[in-house]
C-alpha cells in the first residue's frame, strides 16, 4: 500500500525541505539587505560541500574542524562577492548586478571543476550508527543531523536578528535603508555581514546534504533554484516564510514523487509553485503590497 509509506514520504520531504529552507533563508537575507537575487547562492552550497570533502578526504582533517573551516571559507567568499564583483561594478542597475552574480556563479563552478575535478564525490555520514525506526518510517542518522542542525540554525538566526545589536541593525537596513543611514547604522558593513551570513548558511546546507546525495561541481544549480523557489513560495524576503516555504516545497516534492511520478517530480513542484503564485502573488506569507497614487 502506498498510503503506508506516507510517513516515509513526509520525513524524506522534511529532510530535503530543511536544506531548501537553509538556502532560501540565505536568499532572503541578501535580498533584504540589497534588493538583489544572488544567483551564486547555490554555488555556496556546492562549495561548502566540496571544501568539506577536500579537507577531510584529501587533507585528512577531522570532521568538526573541516565543518567550521568550510563555513569560514564560504563566508569569506561571500564577503569577496559583495566587496569585489558587486562593489566594483559600475552600474547600480538591479538586473546588471544580478547578472554579475550569475557570472560569479559560473566562475565558481569553473574553479570547483578545476580544483576537485568533474566527477561526483561522496562524503561519509556524520555518524555511522544504524538508522532509526519511527512510526513506520526509517530515519537515517544523517536525516536527523539535517533536521537538528537546521533547527539550531533557525533558532540562532532568530536570536541573532531579535537580540543582538548587529542583527537589529541589519533589520533596520532592510526596513528602511535611508532611515538606517540617518541613525548611524554602518549600512555597508551590514550588507557585508549579510553576504557572509547567507554564504555560511549555504555552505552548511551543502555539507549536510552531501552524505546523502554526493556532490559535484555543478550540483549547486538545482539546489539554488529550489531554494529560490522556496523563498518565493514563502513570500520573498520573509525569513520565516522562507523556512516554511522550504519545508513545504520538500514535502510537496516528495509526495509528488511518491504518489504521482518520480520522473515529473520537479515539474510538479514548480507547477504547484506557479499555481501558488497565481493565487497569492505575494507568496504564502508575504503581505500584498498596496499602492496609493
Amino acid at each position: 500500500m502506498l498510503l503506508d509509506q506516507l510517513p516515509q514520504f513526509l520525513l524524506s520531504g522534511l529532510t530535503s525541505g530543511s536544506i531548501y529552507a537553509l538556502v532560501a533563508v540565505g536568499f532572503c537575507i541578501i535580498y533584504n539587505a540589497t534588493g538583489l537575487v544572488n544567483f551564486a547562492q547555490g554555488e555556496f552550497v556546492m562549495l561548502g560541500a566540496m571544501l568539506m570533502i577536500g579537507l577531510t578526504q584529501d587533507m585528512g582533517l577531522a570532521m568538526p574542524v573541516a565543518f567550521v573551516t568550510s563555513i569560514a571559507a564560504a563566508m569569506l567568499l561571500g564577503v569577496f562577492l559583495e566587496r569585489v564583483p558587486l562593489g566594483l561594478a559600475r552600474s547600480r542597475h538591479v538586473l546588471i548586478l544580478v547578472l554579475v552574480t550569475v557570472g560569479f556563479s559560473i566562475a565558481a563552478r569553473g574553479a570547483a571543476s578545476l580544483i576537485w575535478g568533474k566527477t561526483a564525490r561522496a562524503l561519509p555520514a556524520f555518524s555511522t550508527e544504524a538508522p532509526l525506526l519511527v512510526a513506520g518510517a526509517v530515519i537515517s542518522r544523517q536525516a536527523l543531523w539535517i533536521l537538528a542542525v537546521t533547527m539550531i540554525c533557525v533558532a540562532l538566526l532568530h536570536l541573532f536578528f531579535q537580540r543582538t545589536a548587529v542583527g537589529q541593525a541589519i533589520r533596520a537596513v532592510s526596513d528602511n535603508r535611508h532611515g538606517a543611514i540617518l541613525v548611524g547604522v554602518p549600512v555597508a558593513r551590514m550588507v557585508m555581514i549579510s553576504f557572509a551570513l547567507s554564504a555560511g548558511l549555504g555552505a552548511t546546507a551543502g555539507m549536510l546534504i552531501a552524505p546523502i546525495t554526493g556532490m559535484h561541481y555543478s550540483a549547486g544549480v538545482m539546489l539554488g533554484l529550489k531554494g529560490f523557489a522556496a523563498a518565493i513560495l514563502g513570500g520573498y524576503g520573509h525569513v520565516w516564510g522562507a523556512v516554511a516555504g522550504g519545508l513545504l516545497l520538500g514535502v510537496l516534492e516528495s509526495l509528488a514523487a511518491g504518489f504521482v511520478s518520480s520522473a515529473y517530480k520537479d515539474a510538479l513542484a514548480f507547477l504547484i509553485l506557479l499555481c501558488v503564485l497565481w493565487i497569492r502573488p505575494a507568496g504564502l506569507f508575504g503581505k500584498a503590497r498596496t499602492r496609493r497614487v
Binding site: I96, V100, F104, I106, A107
Partner: peptide, 15 residues
C-alpha cells in the same frame, strides 16, 4: 579553464 574564464569574462564585462 573554459568554464572559469567564461564566468570571469562575463562578470568583468558586466561590471
Amino acid at each position: 579553464l573554459m568554464i572559469l574564464l567564461h564566468g570571469l569574462i562575463l562578470m568583468l564585462v558586466l561590471m
